[in-house]
Amino acid sequence: KRYVRKGVPLEHRARVWMVLSGAQAQMDQNPGYYHQLLQGERNPRLEDAIRTDLNRTFPDNVKFRKTTDPCLQRTLYNVLLAYGHHNQGVGYCQGMNFIAGYLILITNNEEESFWLLDALVGRILPDYYSPAMLGLKTDQEVLGELVRAKLPAVGALMERLGVLWTLLVSRWFICLFVDILPVETVLRIWDCLFNEGSKIIFRVALTLIKQHQELILEATSVPDICDKFKQITKGSFVMECHTFMQKIFSEPGSLSMATVAKLRESCRARLLAQG
């Protein structure tokens, strides 16, 4: 844990993620499965949904440009299509394209990217991407509870302005900070995510909020607070990933998996009761 928290060297990252997440084991136990999925029965709705987003995934990255050869759009399409066939309850949800895109860039391997995506969507993250997005809504409520407990002034402001957390942090959870924080910082966060699980997301979110508490408290309106939440993901604090990673383990204080599990349970029950 200590070594992973200090950052996995880029050249070993794919290998380490594969082993830590159990993706390697899954891949070894299911030879040929990925290629079968690609040949599976066609699903035009799924194909359309994925295709709509291909040009809208990292348009600034040359490797993802339609005009480049070899173009990673094809690889991305395959990984997402295979995943949609594999996990039909989820299919394709926007945001998965950004995650798969990063996995492809790191592994340089289509099949490994698929198994890593499966580790994240199927096991590490709790139900963020299924059509009801209940896991996502739950975790946003959990973050709200944690903020109320640990940073009550921010909690009170949110209540006063009547802002829902989903407005501010949907992208943080859905994209796992891709395109929100700097690349190197995101990769360091993912190192821990694969190793320690989804509570890392709360650590990162709480750290960002705590570090910029004063700035956030200046907000006087909903658009204002949206702006502040964009500002806090930029600048030197998030660029210096070593310090940032140290902070996420010290700043928010203790955060046990048991606490998170309990909060998830109560928030989920509340959401289900609301309908």
Partner: peptide
């Protein structure tokens, strides 16, 4: 060249 919107922007 733009990413698609996740959630809400304003």
């Amino acid at each position: 060249d733009s990413n698609h919107t996740i959630g809400v922007e304003f």
